[in-house]
Design a binder for these strands. Structure first.
Length: 879
DNA sequence: CACTCCCGCCAATTA
DNA sequence: TAATTGGCGGGAGTG
């Protein structure tokens, strides 16, 4: 295209009087005098009258060529008709006849002809996509403006967007330097990463804590070699900056442009609707976006979109939804940026272990789950996500003090969540419409109680078995793989399938596959408690839930994993897949922050945010249900255990994995889904609670059910070595078993070995999996190698302790037990809290124990991973 | 009427 | 202080 244009354009003579064709000047330096020269000279200002008049004049003045019809046609046509032919055929244009042209010329240029997109095309036509590195092309705004016959203002619009993508950079007043697309892929990659981080986390919130900055800086540096191009990515940081600074800058078209692009890059479907983008970009926390603001944002987005369209990065599409079609844009640019910047930032080997994926998942879930508590959310976020910003913040400010921020944070999150949710919906619909695939999200309204869906990861990435649980009214995520027939009431035990066993609180899946489970909160209370958060929270949950695991993984692999880590290999693939699968429901947000997450969290001493969260969470729960927070945890655990045990009998034999529909019925029984780590994820396991309280899911505003999923993230390694205890449901106050009763806690041990890929995993929410899950698996609570202690014996107390220490991220009330360290004495959450933050936030490497621990695990995991993991269920009750 | 998005006022920044 | 940038939103063109 460009070439063509160029040829055309090239001949052009510089504007009449213009001294020099600055545009072509090589070397930015040549004419150092950034003169603002020309500006007026050629442009007789005389006619203030109509813009059109000016335009005409300019056009005519600009060059003879401009007058030429053909030229015009060329210029205009391509853009105008872009829809028709994305691949413009030069011939076409030529062919197009002049006859029309005359009129064309006469009539005042139509609006289209003056469109920014067209203008941008003209602009781009002037410069080579891939200029020789040796020469630098300088762009003079004035010149360009005059040549193109537009006011400078318009040029700014174009340049700003181009600048956001590093296609140009400002060198001086009125002077920009043309870089071309050499760095485009790199830039996109960066944006993608940033997007994942940002949107994944949702919050890159700003605090400028040193850490944050530090991190950022570091990251950037790592990623970006050149100093020059990076300017934009900074946007995330700016938040911190003072309001004043932010004011203008924040809203900058550049930043918007980057964010907009990020949305595409992060989006699974690669389609972003305008309104959603606008909502997301409006950082306002408020749910209800100011209408005028929204409109303004949309205007800007159109501006940006026009430029991006002319760059061939996006194209306009429409997403149809029940309400009608909505304008949207689809990313048609490169999706994979293997290139240059690939070197991920895997900091330390240890980091790799972190499952970005899980993290992300967790985060999302967490968010969703706890609609109520801000703290919780935050905490969860922190815990779950490694976002530096967040964490730092948290760390620095332990809970309450900074509520404001939290609020903001929350609000943002909420907002984002809402947006995401919408997006998801849309995407889903879109997808559904476009593809036969049923999106998991489509589930929408889940009948009260049971609302959880299982989302399979995108196929490619993980061999996933998708389970549908019709009974649950779960929408089955059919993301990629073959959909499984839903099992009606009956439970299925088939291998690949995950099933809910009727009556059983378990979900079983084939070990090999990963599942994402979305669950509603078990507790309605939360929603009640947090009225404000409630809806939003749901939205968040949904949104988050929506996020495809794949993304997470991908993310994790990228960032989290150190280069050396096994994940790396896969990474590309994952990423790719992720990227590729356009059909899948979009996940706007991908949590990203692999860096520290697990480890940091896991850090023993440090009270991980997760721990904090838990506490908070618990507290909330407690408040609604029972007051004793401290005891509560333990109690919960115990309860669950008890229950589980109780239920066990009912349960099908270990070998079977069934999901009981009843679960659905039983609002309170928590179900967990265990997600087997894939290679990439090998380190983490996710447990999601399957059960949700009916209330938890609110479809309210949206049809999409908001799911709050309590989830627990556990490093697989950790699991392997440690016995996991599925947490009891704290859930509803309704829960039959009050605090006091904990009979047995069921401890589930996942040992890598034991959990073979083939082995189905059981997740029991309330129910115990006491029976041997798999016959084969020996119940070794501990692997010899691991230093970790198994708490199995002490489930009860361990619960609390575990949470804190364990690398597990808890999104939810779920209590996982995992003991990493041998520390015999279980720490109570409380005790732990204070200390952790610091440790927590430290770089993974800094974490002594955890790291070591992790490494061990990691190794094991790897080894084991290939091998297997097995789930062991021990009936052992704690004390 | 809903989309698009051009246009240019005018404030924030720069030089 | 003047010029450059660029946010912003009215309102016109399109379909």
């Amino acid at each position: 295209e460009n070439i063509f244009d160029r040829s055309r354009m090239a001949p052009k003579t510089p504007i009449k009087n213009e001294p020099i064709d600055l545009s072509k000047q090589k070397g930015c330096t040549p004419e150092r005098n950034p003169i603002t020269p020309v500006k007026i000279i050629d442009r007789p200002q005389p006619d203030p009258w109509t813009p059109t008049a000016n335009l005409k004049m300019l056009v005519s003045a600009a060059s003879p060529d401009m007058r030429d019809r053909e030229k015009k046609k060329e210029l205009f046509r391509p853009i105008e008709n872009s829809e028709q032919s994305d691949t413009p055929d030069s011939l076409q244009y030529d062919i197009i006849d002049d006859t029309t042209v005359d009129e064309f010329e006469k009539q005042r240029p139509s609006r289209k002809q003056k469109s920014l997109g067209l203008l941008c095309q003209k602009f781009l036509a002037r410069y080579p996509n891939y200029p020789l590195s040796t020469e630098k092309t300088t762009i003079s705004l004035d010149e360009v403006a005059s040549v193109l016959g537009v006011e400078r203002r318009r040029i700014y619009d174009i340049v700003n967007v181009l600048e956001s993508l590093h296609l140009v950079s400002r060198v001086a007043k009125n002077q920009y330097c043309w870089h071309g697309r050499h760095n485009l892929s790199q830039t996109l990659k960066m944006l993608q990463e940033a997007g994942e981080l940002q949107y994944g986390e949702l919050m890159t919130f700003q605090h400028k804590e040193q850490d944050l900055e530090y991190k950022f800086g570091e990251r950037k540096k790592e990623t970006i070699p050149h100093s020059q191009d990076r300017p934009l990515l900074d946007f995330s940081e700016p938040d911190c900056s003072s309001a004043s600074a932010n004011s203008r800058k924040d809203k900058s078209l550049r930043i918007m442009s980057q964010k907009f692009v990020m949305l595409f890059l992060v989006s699974k479907t690669k389609i972003v609707t305008l309104d959603i983008a606008a909502k997301i970009l409006i950082e306002e926390t408020q749910d209800t976006v100011d209408h005028s603001k929204f409109k303004t944002k949309v205007r800007r987005l159109y501006d940006i979109a026009n430029v991006l369209t002319s760059l061939g990065l996006i194209k306009k599409v429409h997403v149809t939804e029940e309400r009608g079609r909505k304008p949207a844009f689809k990313w048609i640019g490169p999706v994979e940026f293997s290139g240059k910047t690939d070197e991920l930032r895997g900091h330390s080997p240890t980091s790799d272990s972190l499952p970005g994926t899980e993290r992300g998942d967790c985060t999302q879930y967490q968010i969703c789950a706890t609609g109520k508590q801000r703290f919780t959310r935050h905490a969860s976020f922190n815990g779950a996500q490694p976002c530096e910003g967040t964490r730092r913040k948290v760390s620095s400010e332990p809970n309450s003090p900074h509520q404001e921020r939290q609020d903001e944070y929350c609000s943002k999150m909420i907002n984002l969540a809402a947006v995401c949710r919408q997006k998801i919906e849309e995407d889903t619909r879109w997808v559904a419409r476009n593809s036969s695939i049923t999106s998991p999200f489509s589930l929408l309204p889940v009948p009260g109680d049971s609302d959880f869906c299982v989302n399979p990861l995108p196929q490619a990435v993980f061999p996933v078995v998708q389970a549908e649980v019709p009974s649950l009214s779960l929408p089955i995520g059919i993301s990629s793989q073959a959909p499984y027939p839903s099992m009606p009431a009956a439970s299925k035990t088939e291998n690949g399938k995950a099933t809910l066993v009727p009556n059983q609180p378990f979900l079983c899946f084939p070990s090999s596959s990963l599942f994402m489970l979305y669950g509603g909160l078990q507790e309605n209370n939360l929603s009640e408690t947090l009225p404000t958060a409630g809806d939003k929270g749901n939205g968040n949950a949904e949104a988050q839930a929506a996020i495809p695991p794949a993304l997470c993984q991908k993310r994790s692999s990228h960032k989290c994993t150190s280069p050396s880590s096994p994940a790396d290999d896969e990474e590309p693939a994952l990423k790719k897949q992720t990227m590729e699968q356009s059909d899948l429901p979009l996940s706007l947000v991908v949590p990203k922050k692999p860096f520290e997450s697990p480890k940091a969290e896991s850090t023993p001493g440090s009270g991980c945010p997760s721990a904090v969260h838990l506490e908070t969470y618990r507290l909330d729960l407690a408040s609604r249900a029972a007051p004793e927070a401290a005891s509560k945890e333990s109690s919960d655990c115990q309860e669950q255990e008890k229950r589980s045990q109780n239920t066990d009998p009912d349960e099908p034999p270990p070998g079977n994995e069934h999901i009981s529909k009843e679960n659905a019925n039983q609002p309170f029984q928590p179900q967990y889904l265990y997600v087997q780590p894939t290679t990439g994820l090998s380190n983490f396991n996710f447990l999601f609670s399957a059960n949700q309280a009916p209330g938890a899911i609110s479809l309210a505003s949206n049809q999409l059910p908001s799911l709050s999923v309590p989830c627990v993230m556990v490093p697989s390694a950790a699991l392997a070595s440690f016995p996991l205890v599925c947490s009891p449901s704290f859930t509803s106050p309704l829960s039959p078993v009050p605090d006091g009763s904990f009979s047995a806690a069921a401890s589930v041990n996942f040992s890598m070995s034991s959990m073979a890929s083939t082995t189905p995993v059981f997740i029991s929410s309330t129910a115990m999996v006491t029976p041997k899950v798999s016959p084969a698996p020996s119940v070794d609570l501990q692997q010899p190698a691991h230093p970790a202690l198994h708490l199995s014996p002490v489930l009860t107390r361990s619960c609390s302790a575990v949470k804190l220490d364990s690398p597990v991220c808890v999104g939810h009330p779920v209590t996982l037990l995992k003991l990493q360290q041998p520390s015999s004495t279980p720490l109570t959450p409380k005790s732990i809290r204070p200390a952790h933050h610091e440790a927590f936030f430290k770089t993974p490497g800094s974490l002594g124990d955890p790291v070591a621990w992790k490494k061990n695990e990691g190794n094991q995991t790897r080894n084991a991973s290939s091998v297997q993991r097995r789930l062991e269920i021990s009936g052992t009750s704690p004390d």
